[in-house]
Computed example of a mutant assay.
Amino acid sequence: MKKHHAPALIAIVFYKTFVASLLTVTSIALLFALKNHQVLQEFSQSYLLESKLKIIEFILDKLLILNPKNLLLSGIAAALYAVLTAVEAVGLWYEKDWATILVLVLVSISIPPEIYVLVQGVTVLKVAVFITNVAILWYLLHHWPKHGKGA
């Protein structure tokens, strides 16, 4: 017999999986930039980018501001957070109490900084992330006993 998951829980698991995927891609990009820092600097100064591909130029400028040590630390941090987020998603899928507690703690910790970031400047993405995290927090707090099935 297949287990039936609540639609909201499925949405949270997909969201966590999406975030883990984005963090993995970010980590790979940062570590790639670290390994090829000199090549990226030369490419950014290349005539190929003059008045073309503004988004690539913007990304390269942001990457090249970071020194190699910061690229390494950022890449490792993104990778670790990607693993943690993936573990959250798997634990939630199997409806484990520890996963619910982990998500509740991490989402609760993230809300005050998100409010601070929103006060600094509102964007659609910032509002969407904030609302999503508040919704996750609310859902898990109100449905935890139903989803937790033990360690």
Rank of each mutant, 00 (worst) to 15 (best):
Thr100Asn: 13
Ala128Pro: 02
His5Thr: 10
Gln41Cys: 02
Val124Ser: 03
Tyr47Trp: 14
Lys52Thr: 12
Thr17Met: 14
Lys126Met: 09
Leu60Met: 04
Ala29Met: 14
Thr17Trp: 04
His37Ser: 04
Ala33Asp: 05
Lys146Trp: 01
Glu57Pro: 00
Phe43Ser: 06
Ala8Trp: 04
Asp61Tyr: 06
Leu125Arg: 13
Thr85Gln: 10
Leu34His: 10
Tyr47Phe: 14
Thr26Gln: 07
Val13Tyr: 02
Leu31Phe: 09
Gly75Gln: 11
Lys96Gln: 09
Val25Leu: 13
Asn133Ala: 05
Ala79His: 05
Ile131Met: 10
Phe43Met: 04
Leu60Tyr: 03
Gly75Asp: 06
His4Ala: 13
Ile76Lys: 06
Glu57Ser: 10
Thr17Lys: 08
Asn67Leu: 11
Val107Pro: 07
His147Asp: 11
Ala135Trp: 13
Ser51Leu: 03
Leu125Trp: 08
Val83Thr: 10
Leu141Gln: 08
Ala6Gly: 01
Phe14Leu: 15
Ile101Leu: 14
Leu72Ser: 00
Gly150Arg: 01
Ala89Ser: 15
Leu64Thr: 07
Glu42Thr: 11
Ala99Asp: 07
Ile55Gln: 14
Val39Ile: 15
Leu64Ile: 01
Thr24Met: 01
Leu92Met: 07
Ala78Phe: 03
Ala128Met: 10
Ser110Glu: 04
Lys35Trp: 12
Asp61Phe: 05
Ile28Lys: 04
Ala78Met: 08
Leu60Ile: 05
Val87Ser: 12
Phe32Thr: 14
Val129Phe: 05
Val87Asp: 11
Phe58Thr: 09
Val25Tyr: 06
Val39Lys: 12
His4Met: 13
Ile111Met: 09
Pro113Met: 07
Ala82Gln: 09
Ser108Lys: 03
Gln41Lys: 13
Glu50Asp: 12
Leu104Gln: 08
Gln38Tyr: 04
Thr123Leu: 00
Ile111His: 07
Gln41Asp: 07
Lys35Gln: 11
His147Arg: 12
Gln41Ala: 05
Leu106Arg: 14
Ile109Ala: 13
Leu22Glu: 07
Leu53Gly: 05
Ile65Pro: 01
Leu102Tyr: 07
Leu48Cys: 01
Phe43Gln: 02
Leu53Cys: 06
Val129Met: 03
Ala128Cys: 02
